[in-house]
């Protein structure tokens, strides 16, 4: 067993568990995730689950979904530094997908009042859940990532319907942005901030 501290609480975890798994096992639900889903491989690409890890007197941010627990480390899942980083990440995501209900709710929860980045609606946050779902659970591999850098996209090869696609719809089912549109009263690019579903979690009882 590995001993560590999460948000001031002494906890034990099995060797090989990630910080996210451990936190959730102990009922600590202050770590939001987007690209992580049980049953799929971990991609660690959205970085929303970053937490502050203090080890040997040094503090740094790391994605909790892939960070294996280590003896003696201290983890802060909701410190000021963590929230600040998550806010920027949510703002970045919203700038590329302003109508997503998931993201609008996250923005409300994190008290984001203003979208400071230039909005370019792409309708996709490239979390890759659909790609992994298609390949790992549906055993199809009909969609994938193409291009790189700012041009990265999810599509079928050559942008034509793939022979291996069975139109099962699993990609749509798992997508955190394309199905649920935010219906809050707002202009395109505005922040909703009004939904009763969005429970504000900020400011959180801070331990830092």
């Amino acid at each position: 067993m590995v001993n560590l501290i999460i948000d001031g609480q002494h906890v034990q975890a099995e060797e090989g568990w990630t910080i996210l798994e451990t936190a959730r096992y102990y009922g600590i639900d202050t770590i939001p995730t987007l690209c992580y889903r049980e049953g799929l491989t971990t991609d660690s690409s959205c970085r929303l689950c970053v937490v502050e890890i203090i080890s040997r007197g040094r503090s740094r941010l790391s994605a909790s979904c892939s960070y294996p627990v280590q003896e003696g480390i201290e983890v802060r899942t909701n410190s000021r530094r963590v929230r600040q980083a998550r806010k920027i990440i949510i703002e970045l995501l919203l700038a590329s997908c302003p109508n997503s209900k998931t993201l609008q709710c996250l923005a409300s929860q994190y008290g984001i009042k203003e979208l400071r980045f230039k909005v370019e609606d792409r309708g996709c946050i490239l979390c890759g859940l659909c790609v992994r779902m298609c390949k790992e659970q549906m055993q199809a591999g009909a969609i994938g990532f193409f291009n790189r850098g700012v041009d990265r996209r999810v599509a079928m090869p050559f942008h034509v319907r793939s022979d291996v696609c069975r139109e099962c719809g699993a990609c749509l089912y798992i997508c955190p942005v394309c199905e649920l549109q935010c219906r809050g009263p707002r202009e395109p690019g505005d922040l909703c901030n009004g939904c009763f579903e969005a429970i504000r979690i900020d400011p959180f009882p801070s331990r830092d």
Partner: peptide
């Protein structure tokens, strides 16, 4: 151009 484009930040 040279970022692989995988992670959000």
């Amino acid at each position: 151009e040279e970022s692989c484009g995988k992670c959000v930040p």
